[in-house]
């Protein structure tokens, strides 16, 4: 371990093997964090380890979000009954290779990793009512075979466009493959206009997959309530702002909105769908 870079165990869970689920806090629409927090709460997962931020994160001050000072964290939770280790972390700003290897080292210090899943949101130009599938990228043909048994899109062809960089999840998959750990990145498409307000349909779909994959037995009806509440809010908003309905109908029928319409849609949703706002 390099000088100044370390981690601390609070306990050492006893497991023969585990599946590792990873999410990044800076994720699109907070999908990963929303899903992981829900699962952790329902499974009563226990925090057992934390990576110290020094060397990986900017420590020249703190970021303030929703009026609250934040601090970078990389926390490891465990649910022995379900053989799960769950990592909830900010994305490091330096030493990515070292960080990703440390993440796997810490988990393997507990038990061998059977498989690895990252969870993330993906911005799309679809309507929130459009049926969506989780999209999966595997790091090996074996993992691809496993994934093909589920209701997932597993035929993605993609190359990072010029001027952009691969995601940290792709990087983690690559590091895992070098260590002979099979893994998959799961991407849930999210309508661009719900990135700020949140998308309970996307959360439900993702938890549903994890429920099925790991036999978690978690109640997902809470998301139906959230979906219902969001639908009602959007309906009230459509009554108040008549153009909104037209925007959503266009998206539902795969018609692209103009840049101006996109902007207006995002503005309305952000303004009126926030947690504390009622249209």
């Amino acid at each position: 371990m390099s000088e100044g870079i370390s981690y601390k165990f609070f306990s050492k869970p006893k497991l023969n093997s585990c599946s590792l689920i990873v999410c990044w806090k800076e994720d699109t629409g907070r999908l990963g964090v929303s899903v992981i927090d829900y699962i952790n709460e329902k499974l009563n997962s226990q925090l057992f380890c934390e990576i110290e931020p020094e060397g990986f994160f900017y420590l020249g001050g703190v970021l303030v979000e929703d009026n609250i000072a934040q601090f970078p964290e990389s926390k490891f939770y465990c649910c022995p009954e379900k053989k799960l280790v769950i990592v909830r972390s900010n994305t490091p700003r330096a030493e990515w290779y070292k960080f990703l290897n440390m993440l796997l080292d810490i988990t393997e210090d507990i038990c061998p990793i059977k498989d690895l899943y990252t969870i993330g949101g993906m911005v799309t130009l679809v309507a929130h009512t459009t049926p969506r599938k989780l999209l999966a990228t595997a790091n090996s043909p074996e993992m691809n075979t496993v994934l093909s048994r589920y209701d997932l899109s597993v035929d993605l062809n993609y190359e990072t466009p010029s001027g952009q960089r691969p995601t940290l999840s792709s990087y983690l998959l690559w590091v895992a493959r070098r260590r002979n750990i099979m893994g998959a990145a799961l991407w849930m498409p999210m309508p661009f206009y719900l990135v700020s307000a949140g998308d309970p349909r996307a959360y439900k779909k993702t938890v549903d997959f994890l429920n099925f994959r790991f036999n978690l037995g978690i109640d997902i009806s809470v998301f139906d309530d959230e979906i219902h509440r969001q639908n009602e809010k959007i309906a009230r908003l459509s009554n108040r702002f008549l153009e909104l309905d037209g925007f959503l109908r266009k998206l539902e029928t795969n018609i692209n909105l103009t840049e101006e319409e996109n902007g207006r849609l995002v503005q309305l949703m952000e303004e009126y769908l926030g947690k504390d706002n009622q249209p």
Binding site: W96, T137, S140, V154, D155, N157, T160, P166, W174
Partner: peptide, 15 residues
């Protein structure tokens, strides 16, 4: 940090 990821038929081929 890597420059590019190549994914073919749902499988990460290279970073």
């Amino acid at each position: 940090y890597p420059r590019k990821v190549l994914i073919r038929n749902g499988e990460l081929k290279d970073l």
